[in-house]
Structure formats: structure tokens, C-alpha cells
Measured scan of single mutants.
Amino acid sequence: LGPKYVGLWDFKSRTDEELSFRAGDVFHVARKEEQWWWATLLDEAGGAVAQGYVPHNYLAERE
């Protein structure tokens, strides 16, 4: 699936296409579209919880 990303700060969605998340949440990014990335929010087991657009500057690649 490629690298995983972690949320740096809490983010509250403003549209139906955006995905709310908390700092520390883990994502798989499917598409990078300039300022907004289409991402899947993952649970602790790595299963998909939700999908939506997230601001790229709120995520960091997980080491």
C-alpha cells in the first residue's frame, strides 16, 4: 500500500468530501492533489475506517 502517514494536528472537516481526524491518527494516502490528499483513515489493526480529503500539511510520513 505504500507509506503510511500520521496526523500532526486535529482537523475538522468543512465539507462532505473532507475527513475529520485527530492528531496521531494513521492514514494511507491514495492520491496527492496539490493542497488536498485523498486518504483512508486506518484503525489500529490497519483496517479502513473512512475516506476523504485531508490537508497535506496536516500529515507527516510515518517512519
Rank of each mutant, 00 (worst) to 15 (best):
L41S: 01
V29C: 04
L42C: 07
Q35T: 12
E33M: 09
A60R: 12
V6Q: 04
A60G: 09
G7R: 00
L42K: 00
E18K: 05
F11W: 14
E17M: 14
E17W: 13
G2Q: 14
D10W: 07
G2A: 14
P55F: 05
W37Y: 08
Y53V: 03
D25L: 05
K12T: 15
A30Y: 11
E61K: 11
L42H: 02
E17S: 13
E44A: 12
S13Q: 08
G46T: 04
V6M: 06
N57G: 09
K12E: 15
Y58A: 11
E33P: 02
R14F: 09
T15Q: 09
V49T: 06
R14D: 11
F21Y: 01
E63C: 13
A23G: 04
G24H: 03
G24L: 03
E61T: 09
L1A: 12
A39E: 01
A39L: 03
E17Q: 14
V26M: 13
K32L: 05
R14S: 14
V49W: 04
W38E: 01
Y53W: 15
L19Y: 04
K32F: 09
F21E: 00
D43E: 00
A30I: 15
V49H: 04
A60Q: 13
F21W: 02
E61F: 09
Y5N: 00
G24Y: 02
Q51T: 14
K32R: 09
Y58F: 11
R14K: 11
Q51W: 09
E18G: 10
D43K: 03
E44H: 10
G52H: 02
A30G: 12
Y58T: 04
H28Y: 15
D25R: 01
D25K: 02
R62H: 14
L8N: 04
T40M: 11
V54I: 06
G52S: 01
H56S: 15
G52Q: 01
A45Q: 14
K32Q: 07
G47N: 15
G47D: 13
E44P: 11
V54D: 01
L1D: 12
D16T: 11
F11E: 04
D25E: 03
K4M: 15
F11T: 03
G52E: 00
F27N: 01
F21D: 00
E33T: 09
Q35W: 14
E33A: 09
S13F: 03
R22I: 08
D43H: 02
E61H: 07
D25Q: 06
N57E: 11
E17F: 12
R22V: 10
L8M: 09
K4N: 09
A50C: 05
A45Y: 14
A50W: 06
R31P: 02
R14I: 10
A23I: 06
G46E: 06
G7Y: 05
P3T: 12
G52M: 02
S13C: 08
R14T: 14
W38Q: 02
T15S: 13
G47E: 14
R22K: 14
K12R: 10
P55R: 05
Y58M: 07
F27T: 01
S20R: 02
V54P: 01
L8D: 04
A60P: 04
W38N: 00
L42Y: 06
T15L: 07
V29P: 01
F27A: 00
W36E: 02
T40V: 15
E34A: 12
R31M: 08
W36P: 00
G2L: 14
A39I: 04
A45G: 11
V6E: 07
T15W: 09
D10C: 10
R22H: 11
G2M: 14
A50P: 01
A23E: 07
V6P: 02
H28I: 15
A48E: 12
Y5Q: 01
T15P: 01
F21N: 00
V26Q: 10
A30P: 04
T40W: 11
W37Q: 00
Q51I: 07
R62S: 14
T40N: 04
W36C: 07
G46K: 03
V26K: 07
G47S: 12
D16W: 08
F21S: 00
F21C: 08
K4A: 10
E18C: 12
T40F: 12
E63I: 13
L19N: 00
G52F: 06
R31D: 05
G46R: 03
G7F: 07
D16H: 11
E18A: 09
V26S: 08
P55I: 09
G47H: 15
F27R: 00
F11I: 01
E33L: 09
P55T: 04
E63Y: 12
F21L: 02
Y58G: 06
K4Y: 15
L59E: 02
P55K: 05
W38H: 04
G7H: 04
T40L: 11
V49D: 02
L1R: 10
H28N: 09
A50Q: 08
D43P: 01
L42T: 03
A45T: 13
T40E: 08
E33Q: 08
F27V: 03
H28F: 14
H56D: 07
A30V: 15
A48P: 12
L19V: 05
A48Q: 09
A23L: 05
A48G: 09
G47P: 02
D10R: 04
A30C: 13
F21H: 00
G46I: 08
D25G: 05
E63P: 13
S20P: 03
S20Q: 04
K12F: 13
L42A: 01
H56K: 14
Q35F: 15
G52W: 06
K4W: 13
L8V: 08
G46M: 05
E61L: 15
L59I: 05
L59F: 04
H56N: 10
D43N: 10
S20Y: 05
K4Q: 13
L42E: 03
L19A: 00
A39N: 00
K12C: 15
A60Y: 09
D10A: 05
L42P: 00
A39H: 00
A60K: 13
E18W: 13
G47K: 15
W9C: 15
Y5V: 00
P55D: 06
D10Y: 07
G7K: 01
K12Q: 15
W9H: 10
Q35G: 13
R22A: 09
A48N: 08
S20K: 03
L59R: 00
N57Q: 08
H56I: 10
Q51R: 07
E44N: 11
V54G: 01
A45P: 02
G24R: 02
H56F: 13
S13H: 05
A50M: 08
E61R: 11
D43L: 05
R14Y: 09
A60I: 14
D25H: 03
Y5A: 01
T40S: 07
R62N: 11
K32E: 04
E61M: 13
G2N: 12
L59A: 01
D43Q: 04
D43T: 05
Y53P: 01
Y53L: 07
D43R: 02
R62K: 14
A60L: 10
W9P: 04
A50L: 06
E61I: 15
A23N: 04
V29A: 02
E17I: 13
L19W: 04
Y53N: 03
A48M: 11
G46Y: 05
V54S: 02
E44S: 12
W37C: 05
K12V: 15
W38P: 00
D10T: 05
F11N: 04
G2V: 14
G2Y: 14
L19C: 03
D43I: 04
R31E: 06
R62E: 15
L59D: 04
V6I: 12
L1P: 13
G47F: 14
F21I: 05
G2P: 12
S13D: 03
G52N: 02
R22G: 05
S13P: 05
E63R: 11
K12N: 14
E63M: 12
G7Q: 03
A30W: 14
G47A: 14
P3C: 12
E44G: 10
D25S: 07
R22F: 11
K12D: 14
K4P: 06
E44C: 13
A50Y: 04
T40H: 08
D10L: 11
L41T: 01
D43S: 07
Y53A: 01
K12Y: 14
F11P: 04
A39P: 01
G46V: 04
K4C: 15
A60C: 12
H56T: 07
E34D: 13
A23F: 03
D25T: 03
W37G: 00
H56L: 08
V54M: 02
R31S: 07
V29L: 02
A50H: 05
A30F: 11
P3M: 11
H56V: 10
A48C: 09
W37S: 01
R14H: 10
W38R: 02
V49G: 04
E33G: 14
H56R: 13
G24N: 04
L42M: 06
E61Y: 10
W37V: 05
W37N: 00
Q51C: 11
Y53S: 02
W37R: 00
F11K: 02
A45N: 15
E34N: 12
S20H: 02
W38G: 00
G24A: 02
R22Y: 10
D16C: 11
F27M: 09
N57Y: 11
V6W: 04
L41I: 06
